[in-house]
Design a protein around this nucleic acid. Sequence first.
DNA 1: GATTGCTACAACAGAACCTC
DNA 2: GAGGTTCTGTTGTAGCAATC
Length: 371
Amino acid sequence: MKFDALSLQKFLMGECEPLETLVWLSDIFVPEIVSRLNTNDVRQRLGIYAGEKIPENERNLTDVRNRVSLILEYELARIATCILEDNGIQNLFWCYVVANRFPDLEVRTTSGERGLRVEVKCLQSIAEEKSANFDTLKKDIHPKTDFVVVFLWEWKYDSQEIKWNRSPFVHKAFVFHASTLAYLRDWYWLNKPPQDLGDGLQGFDLRYAVNCKNGIYNQEEGNYGKLLRIWKKDFEYQPPKSTLLYHTVTDYLSFKKIVITEGFKNLAYLLLPKITGSNEIYPIHYNDNNDQYFIGWQSKNVCFILNSFFSMFSKKRKNDILVHIFTNGANKIYTFNDRYDSTEYDLDGSQMKKIKKHEKPKYLIQGLVEN
DNA sequence: GATTGCTACAACAGAACCTC
DNA sequence: GAGGTTCTGTTGTAGCAATC
């Protein structure tokens, strides 16, 4: 993709209004990065080759996820600098912030002047609880130049012709205006304190969020800023309205939905073939008047349904959906919550007979193997 | 069932400590 | 003092389990 060198330089040096920069990053610049990240040229350098093993235990998977996250962060900077070179810009580059502090990356001129600053977060889509953490205090964030980029990635198994077995694939990237996201986070956090504060208060010191339990203060435990806990739709305390905040709320709610749905899809593609023995998987849609709703995924006689979508319907419509699924040949349903705990049911018409709860996707498969 | 508080565990850097 | 080892704190990602 060819960029206009002048506007590229202007955006990256933080000379435009934050909203304008946000839209440019979201719609133009970061999609180009993702497109290049997903090329074989990049993926071959992150691939797991025949004979190589990674840990399967969640505890030890953490280091692999950390490493993928770090590499994607570096690749972003490398590719972003390549884009500058491709467009004839010699006086700008992306650099790594070596000190362990916000942000991860900065745009600099060759004379050292600073432009945009970017914090990179990576989430593996099938992780039951995506917990990447944006806990930078608002005082440390510059409203004009600072942004958060979130990559949603998953292992992608490649065809036989390609020499590696699997490699990370970025399914989607999201960009947030850091200052507004932090504002939203704090608005929610401060308006929803724990019940057992005692005579203390929640708040911040110079470096951390500070919690209080029964009057005793402590450094916040690490939940503050978890990306999927930042904001909830229709929260009872609404922040003051602004265009930027409106964008952030809309983008955040969309981000949350996409992250959960994408992980659910990847799980369906991972697990359904192991259950049914078939690689033929297709989406389940429900048509209501002129609207079409996504419900889940089906392979042969087995359906995966996402609770957060299914529960939106009235009892009558739920029955219609179940009959529709049954008519399409399914007699087994697994319902999943947003953290991918599942419940197994036998389906007969619109009647669901509960068989078993599976706390985690891996137990679902283990249970099948044991049976 | 959803939410929230707490814990796990890796890499890494730098300080503190130990031995020669 | 040099060099090696251990400890501590920070960053990062995520899962478990009690509570709402």
